[in-house]
Amino acid sequence: MDVQLAKTGPERRRKRLSSGKIWSMITLIPSMILLLIFVYGFIGWTGWVSTTAWNSIIPNFLSVGLKNYQIVFQTFRFQSDIRNMVVFTVLFILICLIVGLCLALLIDQRIKAESFFRSLYLFPMAISAVATGVVWSWLLNPDTGVNLILKAFGLKHVPQWFLSTRIVPGIPGGQIQIGIPIALLAVLIASVWQMSGFAMAVYLAGLRGIPDELKEAAKIDGANAWRTFWSVILPQLKATTTTIIIILTAASLKVFGLIYAMTGPGQDFVTDMPSMNMFQTTYQGDQFAQGAVISIVMLILIALFIIPYLISTLREEE
Protein backbone atom coordinates (compact mmCIF):
# COMPACT_ATOMS: atom_id res chain seq x y z
CA MET A 1 0.00 0.00 0.00
CA ASP A 2 2.70 2.38 1.01
CA VAL A 3 4.63 1.78 -2.14
CA GLN A 4 1.63 2.31 -4.32
CA LEU A 5 0.79 5.56 -2.62
CA ALA A 6 4.33 6.76 -3.03
CA LYS A 7 4.17 6.01 -6.75
CA THR A 8 0.95 7.83 -7.43
CA GLY A 9 1.85 10.69 -5.09
CA PRO A 10 2.74 13.46 -7.58
CA GLU A 11 -0.18 12.67 -9.88
CA ARG A 12 -2.60 12.69 -6.99
CA ARG A 13 -1.29 15.99 -5.74
CA ARG A 14 -1.89 17.61 -9.08
CA LYS A 15 -5.43 16.25 -9.11
CA ARG A 16 -6.04 17.33 -5.58
CA LEU A 17 -4.83 20.82 -6.40
CA SER A 18 -7.22 21.24 -9.26
CA SER A 19 -10.11 19.84 -7.27
CA GLY A 20 -9.08 22.18 -4.47
CA LYS A 21 -9.29 25.02 -6.93
CA ILE A 22 -12.76 23.96 -7.94
CA TRP A 23 -13.76 23.70 -4.33
CA SER A 24 -12.46 27.14 -3.54
CA MET A 25 -14.36 28.48 -6.50
CA ILE A 26 -17.54 26.75 -5.36
CA THR A 27 -17.21 28.02 -1.83
CA LEU A 28 -16.40 31.51 -2.99
CA ILE A 29 -19.33 31.85 -5.34
CA PRO A 30 -22.10 32.12 -2.71
CA SER A 31 -20.31 34.87 -0.82
CA MET A 32 -19.50 36.55 -4.12
CA ILE A 33 -23.15 36.52 -5.12
CA LEU A 34 -24.15 37.84 -1.72
CA LEU A 35 -21.53 40.59 -1.97
CA LEU A 36 -22.67 41.48 -5.46
CA ILE A 37 -26.28 41.79 -4.38
CA PHE A 38 -26.03 43.15 -0.87
CA VAL A 39 -23.01 45.38 -1.23
CA TYR A 40 -22.60 46.46 -4.81
CA GLY A 41 -26.22 45.96 -5.79
CA PHE A 42 -27.45 48.12 -2.96
CA ILE A 43 -24.78 50.74 -3.54
CA GLY A 44 -26.13 50.98 -7.05
CA TRP A 45 -29.68 51.03 -5.75
CA THR A 46 -28.86 53.74 -3.20
CA GLY A 47 -27.26 55.72 -6.01
CA TRP A 48 -30.43 55.36 -8.03
CA VAL A 49 -32.69 56.32 -5.10
CA SER A 50 -30.60 59.47 -4.66
CA THR A 51 -31.83 60.63 -8.07
CA THR A 52 -35.52 59.99 -7.40
CA ALA A 53 -38.29 62.03 -5.81
CA TRP A 54 -38.68 59.62 -2.85
CA ASN A 55 -38.96 62.17 -0.09
CA SER A 56 -41.76 60.81 2.06
CA ILE A 57 -42.75 57.46 3.50
CA ILE A 58 -44.34 56.55 0.16
CA PRO A 59 -41.72 55.35 -2.34
CA ASN A 60 -41.66 57.55 -5.40
CA PHE A 61 -39.20 56.56 -8.10
CA LEU A 62 -39.79 59.48 -10.39
CA SER A 63 -36.39 60.58 -11.64
CA VAL A 64 -35.36 64.11 -10.68
CA GLY A 65 -31.73 63.93 -11.80
CA LEU A 66 -29.27 65.60 -9.51
CA LYS A 67 -31.82 67.88 -7.86
CA ASN A 68 -31.47 66.17 -4.48
CA TYR A 69 -27.72 66.68 -4.59
CA GLN A 70 -28.28 70.33 -5.29
CA ILE A 71 -30.69 70.64 -2.36
CA VAL A 72 -28.49 68.75 0.09
CA PHE A 73 -25.28 70.57 -0.84
CA GLN A 74 -26.98 73.91 -0.33
CA THR A 75 -28.05 73.21 3.22
CA PHE A 76 -26.23 74.78 6.13
CA ARG A 77 -26.27 71.44 7.89
CA PHE A 78 -24.57 69.43 5.15
CA GLN A 79 -21.93 72.05 4.53
CA SER A 80 -21.20 72.01 8.26
CA ASP A 81 -21.04 68.20 8.15
CA ILE A 82 -18.39 68.19 5.44
CA ARG A 83 -16.31 70.77 7.29
CA ASN A 84 -16.64 68.83 10.56
CA MET A 85 -15.81 65.53 8.95
CA VAL A 86 -12.63 66.80 7.28
CA VAL A 87 -11.45 68.57 10.45
CA PHE A 88 -12.31 65.60 12.64
CA THR A 89 -10.73 62.95 10.41
CA VAL A 90 -7.46 64.81 9.89
CA LEU A 91 -6.98 65.72 13.55
CA PHE A 92 -8.20 62.35 14.83
CA ILE A 93 -5.75 60.37 12.71
CA LEU A 94 -2.85 62.70 13.31
CA ILE A 95 -3.26 62.71 17.08
CA CYS A 96 -3.94 58.96 17.28
CA LEU A 97 -0.77 58.24 15.28
CA ILE A 98 1.38 60.47 17.44
CA VAL A 99 -0.07 59.33 20.76
CA GLY A 100 -0.10 55.67 19.66
CA LEU A 101 3.52 55.76 18.50
CA CYS A 102 4.70 57.48 21.67
CA LEU A 103 2.91 54.94 23.85
CA ALA A 104 4.28 52.05 21.79
CA LEU A 105 7.83 53.36 21.99
CA LEU A 106 7.53 53.77 25.76
CA ILE A 107 6.11 50.30 26.26
CA ASP A 108 8.75 48.81 23.92
CA GLN A 109 11.50 49.77 26.40
CA ARG A 110 11.22 46.31 27.99
CA ILE A 111 9.54 47.85 30.99
CA LYS A 112 8.11 45.96 33.93
CA ALA A 113 4.44 44.97 33.83
CA GLU A 114 4.43 45.58 30.11
CA SER A 115 1.30 43.56 29.44
CA PHE A 116 -0.50 45.52 32.16
CA PHE A 117 0.21 48.83 30.45
CA ARG A 118 -0.60 47.38 27.04
CA SER A 119 -4.02 46.28 28.26
CA LEU A 120 -4.52 49.52 30.13
CA TYR A 121 -4.19 51.62 26.98
CA LEU A 122 -6.04 49.18 24.77
CA PHE A 123 -8.95 48.80 27.13
CA PRO A 124 -10.95 51.96 26.13
CA MET A 125 -11.40 50.40 22.70
CA ALA A 126 -13.48 47.66 24.28
CA ILE A 127 -15.97 50.17 25.69
CA SER A 128 -18.95 50.92 23.51
CA ALA A 129 -19.05 54.24 21.72
CA VAL A 130 -22.30 55.17 23.48
CA ALA A 131 -20.91 54.57 26.98
CA THR A 132 -17.81 56.55 26.06
CA GLY A 133 -19.95 59.37 24.72
CA VAL A 134 -22.16 59.60 27.79
CA VAL A 135 -19.24 59.57 30.22
CA TRP A 136 -17.28 62.19 28.29
CA SER A 137 -20.36 64.37 27.97
CA TRP A 138 -20.47 64.44 31.77
CA LEU A 139 -16.74 65.00 32.11
CA LEU A 140 -16.70 67.83 29.60
CA ASN A 141 -19.95 69.51 30.55
CA PRO A 142 -18.78 73.07 31.29
CA ASP A 143 -20.71 73.27 34.55
CA THR A 144 -19.61 69.94 35.96
CA GLY A 145 -16.77 67.52 35.34
CA VAL A 146 -13.22 68.65 34.65
CA ASN A 147 -14.14 72.32 34.74
CA LEU A 148 -14.71 72.01 38.48
CA ILE A 149 -11.09 70.94 38.82
CA LEU A 150 -9.93 73.80 36.61
CA LYS A 151 -12.01 76.22 38.69
CA ALA A 152 -10.52 74.79 41.88
CA PHE A 153 -7.11 75.71 40.49
CA GLY A 154 -8.34 79.28 40.16
CA LEU A 155 -8.93 79.34 36.43
CA LYS A 156 -11.48 82.06 35.68
CA HIS A 157 -12.32 81.44 32.05
CA VAL A 158 -12.94 77.73 31.85
CA PRO A 159 -13.36 76.16 28.40
CA GLN A 160 -16.87 75.70 27.06
CA TRP A 161 -15.83 72.34 25.57
CA PHE A 162 -18.48 70.91 23.26
CA LEU A 163 -20.90 73.77 23.94
CA SER A 164 -18.67 76.29 22.22
CA THR A 165 -20.07 77.48 18.91
CA ARG A 166 -16.83 79.21 17.92
CA ILE A 167 -15.15 78.29 14.69
CA VAL A 168 -11.47 79.16 14.34
CA PRO A 169 -10.55 81.01 12.18
CA GLY A 170 -14.10 81.13 10.84
CA ILE A 171 -13.63 82.28 7.28
CA PRO A 172 -17.06 82.70 5.64
CA GLY A 173 -17.54 80.19 2.84
CA GLY A 174 -20.82 79.03 1.35
CA GLN A 175 -23.42 79.29 4.09
CA ILE A 176 -21.04 78.37 6.86
CA GLN A 177 -17.84 79.50 8.48
CA ILE A 178 -14.82 77.45 7.52
CA GLY A 179 -12.34 76.50 10.21
CA ILE A 180 -11.99 74.27 13.23
CA PRO A 181 -15.11 74.14 15.42
CA ILE A 182 -13.84 74.32 19.00
CA ALA A 183 -16.63 71.97 20.10
CA LEU A 184 -15.13 69.22 17.93
CA LEU A 185 -11.96 69.29 20.03
CA ALA A 186 -13.97 67.92 22.95
CA VAL A 187 -15.22 65.10 20.76
CA LEU A 188 -11.63 64.54 19.63
CA ILE A 189 -10.44 64.12 23.20
CA ALA A 190 -13.01 61.38 23.74
CA SER A 191 -12.32 59.58 20.48
CA VAL A 192 -8.53 59.79 20.79
CA TRP A 193 -8.84 58.43 24.31
CA GLN A 194 -10.77 55.53 22.87
CA MET A 195 -8.75 54.73 19.76
CA SER A 196 -5.13 55.69 20.42
CA GLY A 197 -4.66 52.39 22.25
CA PHE A 198 -5.40 50.64 19.00
CA ALA A 199 -2.71 52.63 17.19
CA MET A 200 -0.37 51.73 20.04
CA ALA A 201 -1.06 48.00 19.72
CA VAL A 202 -0.47 47.96 15.98
CA TYR A 203 2.69 50.06 16.32
CA LEU A 204 3.92 47.75 19.05
CA ALA A 205 3.53 44.78 16.73
CA GLY A 206 5.33 46.76 14.05
CA LEU A 207 8.18 47.63 16.39
CA ARG A 208 8.54 44.01 17.45
CA GLY A 209 8.76 43.04 13.79
CA ILE A 210 11.89 45.14 13.20
CA PRO A 211 14.90 42.78 13.24
CA ASP A 212 17.32 43.47 16.07
CA GLU A 213 20.18 43.23 13.55
CA LEU A 214 19.10 46.52 12.02
CA LYS A 215 19.20 48.31 15.34
CA GLU A 216 22.52 46.70 16.23
CA ALA A 217 23.98 47.68 12.88
CA ALA A 218 22.86 51.25 13.48
CA LYS A 219 24.49 51.13 16.91
CA ILE A 220 27.76 49.86 15.44
CA ASP A 221 27.64 52.64 12.86
CA GLY A 222 27.51 55.06 15.76
CA ALA A 223 23.93 56.30 15.40
CA ASN A 224 22.44 57.83 18.54
CA ALA A 225 18.95 56.91 19.79
CA TRP A 226 17.18 59.71 17.92
CA ARG A 227 19.02 58.97 14.67
CA THR A 228 18.23 55.25 15.02
CA PHE A 229 14.57 56.05 15.50
CA TRP A 230 14.37 58.53 12.64
CA SER A 231 16.44 56.65 10.03
CA VAL A 232 15.99 53.01 10.99
CA ILE A 233 12.84 52.43 12.98
CA LEU A 234 10.43 54.95 11.48
CA PRO A 235 10.97 53.87 7.83
CA GLN A 236 10.30 50.28 8.91
CA LEU A 237 6.93 51.38 10.31
CA LYS A 238 5.62 52.76 7.03
CA ALA A 239 3.36 49.81 6.26
CA THR A 240 2.12 49.74 9.86
CA THR A 241 1.25 53.43 9.68
CA THR A 242 -0.68 52.93 6.45
CA THR A 243 -2.73 50.17 8.03
CA ILE A 244 -3.56 52.32 11.03
CA ILE A 245 -4.50 55.26 8.82
CA ILE A 246 -6.83 53.16 6.70
CA ILE A 247 -8.59 51.58 9.65
CA LEU A 248 -8.86 54.83 11.61
CA THR A 249 -10.13 56.68 8.55
CA ALA A 250 -12.88 54.12 8.27
CA ALA A 251 -13.70 54.53 11.96
CA SER A 252 -13.62 58.29 11.75
CA LEU A 253 -15.75 58.72 8.64
CA LYS A 254 -18.40 56.47 10.10
CA VAL A 255 -18.35 57.96 13.60
CA PHE A 256 -21.92 58.04 14.86
CA GLY A 257 -22.53 56.46 18.26
CA LEU A 258 -19.98 58.56 20.11
CA ILE A 259 -21.33 61.86 18.81
CA TYR A 260 -24.97 60.80 19.03
CA ALA A 261 -24.50 60.04 22.72
CA MET A 262 -22.04 62.77 23.60
CA THR A 263 -23.12 65.99 21.92
CA GLY A 264 -25.81 65.33 19.35
CA PRO A 265 -25.65 67.55 16.27
CA GLY A 266 -24.86 70.49 18.54
CA GLN A 267 -25.95 74.11 18.32
CA ASP A 268 -25.26 75.44 14.85
CA PHE A 269 -24.29 71.85 13.90
CA VAL A 270 -20.77 72.33 15.24
CA THR A 271 -20.48 68.62 16.06
CA ASP A 272 -22.74 67.17 13.40
CA MET A 273 -21.47 64.48 11.01
CA PRO A 274 -22.81 63.22 7.68
CA SER A 275 -23.72 59.89 9.27
CA MET A 276 -25.96 61.61 11.82
CA ASN A 277 -27.50 63.86 9.20
CA MET A 278 -28.13 60.81 7.02
CA PHE A 279 -29.83 58.96 9.88
CA GLN A 280 -32.10 61.85 10.82
CA THR A 281 -32.90 62.82 7.25
CA THR A 282 -33.75 59.28 6.24
CA TYR A 283 -35.36 57.75 9.28
CA GLN A 284 -36.81 60.68 11.19
CA GLY A 285 -37.62 62.94 8.28
CA ASP A 286 -38.55 60.17 5.83
CA GLN A 287 -36.52 62.00 3.16
CA PHE A 288 -35.18 58.81 1.63
CA ALA A 289 -33.76 60.32 -1.56
CA GLN A 290 -31.89 63.02 0.33
CA GLY A 291 -30.61 60.44 2.80
CA ALA A 292 -29.33 58.42 -0.15
CA VAL A 293 -27.51 61.51 -1.42
CA ILE A 294 -25.66 61.84 1.87
CA SER A 295 -24.78 58.11 1.82
CA ILE A 296 -23.39 58.34 -1.67
CA VAL A 297 -21.32 61.41 -0.82
CA MET A 298 -19.95 59.55 2.20
CA LEU A 299 -19.11 56.57 0.01
CA ILE A 300 -17.27 58.75 -2.49
CA LEU A 301 -15.28 60.44 0.28
CA ILE A 302 -14.32 57.08 1.72
CA ALA A 303 -13.38 55.79 -1.74
CA LEU A 304 -11.09 58.79 -2.16
CA PHE A 305 -9.05 57.43 0.74
CA ILE A 306 -9.27 53.72 0.02
CA ILE A 307 -8.89 53.41 -3.74
CA PRO A 308 -5.42 55.02 -4.01
CA TYR A 309 -4.33 52.70 -1.22
CA LEU A 310 -5.68 49.63 -3.00
CA ILE A 311 -4.02 50.66 -6.25
CA SER A 312 -0.69 51.15 -4.57
CA THR A 313 -0.81 47.79 -2.80
CA LEU A 314 -1.80 46.03 -6.01
CA ARG A 315 1.16 47.62 -7.77
CA GLU A 316 3.52 46.56 -5.02
CA GLU A 317 2.32 42.98 -5.40
CA GLU A 318 2.99 42.96 -9.09
Binding site: V49, P59, T243, I246, A250, G291, S295, L310, T313, E317
Partner: peptide
Protein backbone atom coordinates in the same frame (compact mmCIF):
# COMPACT_ATOMS: atom_id res chain seq x y z
CA UNK B 1 1.72 43.08 1.67
CA UNK B 2 -1.02 40.58 1.04
CA UNK B 3 -2.15 40.90 4.63
CA UNK B 4 -2.54 44.64 4.27
CA UNK B 5 -4.40 44.25 1.07
CA UNK B 6 -6.79 41.94 2.81
CA UNK B 7 -7.29 44.49 5.53
CA UNK B 8 -7.87 47.11 2.91
CA UNK B 9 -10.44 44.99 1.11
CA UNK B 10 -12.15 44.19 4.37
CA UNK B 11 -12.20 47.86 5.20
CA UNK B 12 -13.82 48.69 1.88
CA UNK B 13 -16.42 46.05 2.56
CA UNK B 14 -17.25 47.42 5.95
CA UNK B 15 -17.27 51.00 4.79
CA UNK B 16 -19.65 50.40 1.97
CA UNK B 17 -22.15 49.29 4.56
CA UNK B 18 -22.62 52.92 5.49
CA UNK B 19 -23.99 53.51 2.06
CA UNK B 20 -26.30 50.60 2.47
CA UNK B 21 -27.94 51.78 5.62
CA UNK B 22 -30.32 54.01 3.76
CA UNK B 23 -30.88 51.33 1.16
CA UNK B 24 -32.47 48.84 3.46
CA UNK B 25 -35.95 49.34 2.16
CA UNK B 26 -37.05 47.61 -0.96
CA UNK B 27 -38.48 48.74 -4.19
Amino acid sequence: MKKFRKIGVAAVGVLTLTALVSGCGTA
